[in-house]
Amino acid sequence: MRACAQRPPHEHIHPLGRFWAEFRENKIAVGALIVCGLMIALAVFAPLVSPQNPYDLGNLSLMDSRRPPGFVGSGGYTHLLGTDPQGRDLLSAIFYGLRISIQIGIAAGVVALSIGTALGITAAYFGGRIETLIMRIVDLQLSFPAILLALVLVALLGQGKGQLIGALVAAQYAYFARTAYGAAKSERRKDYVEAALATPLKSRVVILRHILPNCMPPLIVVATVQIANSISLEATLSFLGLGLPVTEPSLGMLISNGFPYMMSGRYWISIYPGIALIILIVAINIVGDQVRDQFNPRLRK
């Protein structure tokens, strides 16, 4: 009985259960996770919770444009956060803008993770000329700022979700490739990989069953950071007019639409979308920092 009482609190728990038990010890990270979940829910159910469809141009009235928070518009409902220059209900536009930002951030992050991981592990596993070719391309890309590369690619590809996601993937996959390469290079030298190769197992089996699972912790950490960076990059491109079309405003475009009116007292057009964007990015980064700390054995208490 004494031995049972002295066991560590997280011993003999499933890895996911142990991870969550450690995660919830950080109340700030738990709060950030709740905020992320709430904002994702608002984005997913935007058509159900929004008083207006801001993308339906037929329902917009210029008579309602640039109205302050609390204004009762021609549609008969109260615009809690006011309206933008096109007469959109700002609260509805923020919900739909969150939808776009989260969709693009997650899609770009997942695709960049897949491409970068495949390239990094391939380079580490096979070595030689393949390693040199892949890693020199990755190093060359990392020498350019992500925002500059994304600007050039969006300008060349044009507007649209697919083009924007493609530009963000091209600007960010190198971070995953470098992380995957470092982790796989370390795993490649270990005895269990050499034993698997001596069996012999096919290279595909060794990579997917042995090397890849052990490379995932650092990649998950990078993924959380890069999703936040994708959302930030998308907002920057939209603010500069290189994001999605004006008929589908994201948070960055909403901020841009209100920027000319900041000095005239119509602060709400830019401020409220900006607050929503900041909350989303900060919440994701806090969750990512906590995940990084838990996957880093040097930071464990």
Rank of each mutant, 00 (worst) to 15 (best):
M1W: 09
M1K: 10
A5T: 13
P8K: 05
E11A: 15
H14I: 08
H14M: 07
G17Y: 04
R18N: 03
A21D: 07
F23K: 08
V30A: 14
I34Y: 05
V35Y: 01
I40H: 03
A41D: 03
A46E: 02
S50A: 15
Q52N: 07
Q52K: 05
P54D: 05
N59P: 04
M63C: 09
D64F: 06
D64E: 09
R66K: 13
P68K: 12
P69H: 03
P69L: 03
G70W: 08
G70N: 10
G75C: 09
G75L: 12
H79W: 05
G82N: 07
T83Q: 03
G87V: 12
S92N: 07
S92F: 02
I94V: 12
F95M: 11
Y96C: 07
G97D: 00
L98A: 06
I100R: 00
I100M: 01
S101E: 00
Q103D: 06
I106E: 04
I106Y: 07
V111H: 01
L113E: 01
L113K: 01
I115L: 08
L119M: 13
L119S: 04
T122H: 11
Y125M: 11
G128N: 13
G128M: 11
G128V: 12
R129H: 13
R129T: 15
V138E: 04
L142C: 10
S143W: 06
S143G: 14
P145S: 07
L148M: 14
L149D: 01
V152S: 01
L153K: 00
V154T: 05
L157S: 03
G158W: 01
G162H: 02
G166V: 00
A170W: 00
A170T: 02
Q172K: 07
A174D: 02
F176I: 05
A180H: 06
A180R: 04
A180K: 08
Y181T: 09
A183D: 05
S186R: 14
R188T: 11
R188V: 14
R189H: 10
D191G: 14
D191I: 15
Y192V: 14
E194H: 14
A195G: 09
A195V: 15
A196I: 10
T199G: 08
P200G: 15
K202V: 05
K202A: 12
H210L: 09
N214T: 09
M216D: 03
P217H: 05
V221P: 07
V222S: 11
A223H: 06
I227H: 02
I227Q: 01
A228H: 04
I231D: 02
L233N: 01
A235W: 00
L237Q: 01
S250N: 08
M253D: 04
L254E: 04
S256R: 06
S256C: 08
G258W: 02
P260R: 11
S264D: 04
G265V: 07
G265R: 03
S270F: 08
S270P: 12
Y272E: 00
I275V: 14
L277V: 03
I281V: 15
I286S: 01
V291Q: 05
R292C: 09
D293T: 12
D293N: 15
L299M: 15
L299D: 06
L299F: 14
K301I: 04
